[in-house]
Design a protein around this nucleic acid. Structure first.
Lengths: 209, 209
DNA sequence: CTCTTGCCTTGACCGGAATCAAGTTGGCCA
DNA sequence: TGGCCAACTTGATTCCGGTCAAGGCAAGAG
């Protein structure tokens, strides 16, 4: 971001200090801007008519959300809740509209951001449609981990409770637990609470039961 | 679209006359612009490693696709194929970039368009995650049909072959066929080839087996 | 007119993941 | 230290939707 952009954005920005469990907005709320997570984690989720929750995305530090809703002028189709104590920036709609009108480069950044989000949703649908629950779990573990680390243990920490991750992967907590157990039995990973150690990345990547 | 926009767009535009089955682009192809369907139908689809196809979207007249890929400068994550003989416009990337730089209103239209697509994908995930196959079929039949037409038969025509629609709804052709059969037995619809007659919209909307 | 071909339907069976129902475990507070 | 609660695990069972296999049917070709 250029200093010019920082200045412009700063005028219509609020810092939101959230405690774990705080709801940022409900489905159906009117949208007045978009959000950026500074630290912590926020989930975007839906509630089905039967009261079941589906976690669409887990938003981490540096990621933004709600831009699309802002541009459509529709109410939020999801609700947002802090998974941990979090600091979130709220950028006002009029700031963005002003930025678009005065700065084509800024506009292109917004377009690029939206495009990335759309692309992520396509990948989301792809994995829901074409991959088994076990494959989805493996994909999740290998997520943003493309550097080749042959022969090295890779330690990762789950960014949320397992029931939240399970919902995001579209499986039940029971199934999630069983799959982690299977992968452990196969010697591919080692699980201890929220800490997962991948014993063999390349074997996990090609694992097919 | 203003006449100014039409003029600008016209310079970098090609008309593509497609026969049924023609492939517009493959997954992985380099993206040089985006497309608008004038008439006919085009499907966007993925192929799984196992060779299974998943239809992501069926694009009809007046709808566009490929904008997001264009803005990201990445290869296509899906492939596009004409479902019927179709006329498709290809608008060149540089035309759009020029438009954005010179016209904030144009830029906002692109943002709005992308936002709508993202919103659609969210609904897509919602129905995959939270609804049964039968509910998805019902949703499809009631799709863009919000006017209240109590007591009237509503006739719709399936825009593609049933196996394509089934794939789009993430079910097998067999399941699709069985569900239509069930709804017929329940007296809610009447099916004859691609023509479906909804006998009771409000009952279908609230139908729960 | 009959043969092929693509599209759809129907039936029998199977299996992956959900559901239901108990346990465990660990952190936290009294 | 003990009790409590949330998070997670484990087992038994069920069921939705997929798979496999066998037709049916209409349209176009020869």
């Amino acid at each position: 971001m250029s200093s010019e952009e920082v200045e412009r954005v700063a005028q219509g920005t609020r810092e939101l200090q959230l405690a774990r469990g705080d709801v940022l907005f409900q489905r159906g709320d009117h949208c007045t801007g978009f959000h950026v997570v500074i630290h912590g984690n926020v989930k975007l989720a839906l509630i089905s008519p039967q009261g079941l929750e589906k976690v669409l995305e887990i938003i981490g530090p540096g990621q933004s959300f709600g831009e699309a809703v802002m541009f459509m002028g529709k109410p939020y189709p999801v609700y947002a809740q802090a998974l941990t104590d979090s600091l979130v920036l709220h950028i006002n709609k009029n700031v963005i509209v002003g930025g678009i009108e005065s700065d084509p480069a800024f506009c292109q950044k917004m377009l690029a951001g939206l495009s990335i989000r759309l692309h992520r949703m396509i990948q989301n649908v792809e994995s829901l449609s074409l991959r088994s629950s076990e494959q989805r779990v493996i994909d999740y573990l290998l997520h943003d981990l493309e550097e080749i680390k042959y022969g090295q243990d890779v330690h990762i920490s789950l960014s949320a409770n397992k029931n939240v991750i399970a919902s995001n992967l579209n499986i039940t907590p029971e199934t999630f637990s069983r799959i982690l157990h299977n992968l452990s039995d196969a010697g591919l990973i080692h699980v201890e609470g929220k800490d997962v150690c991948i014993k063999d990345v390349s074997k996990l990547r090609t694992y097919d039961k």
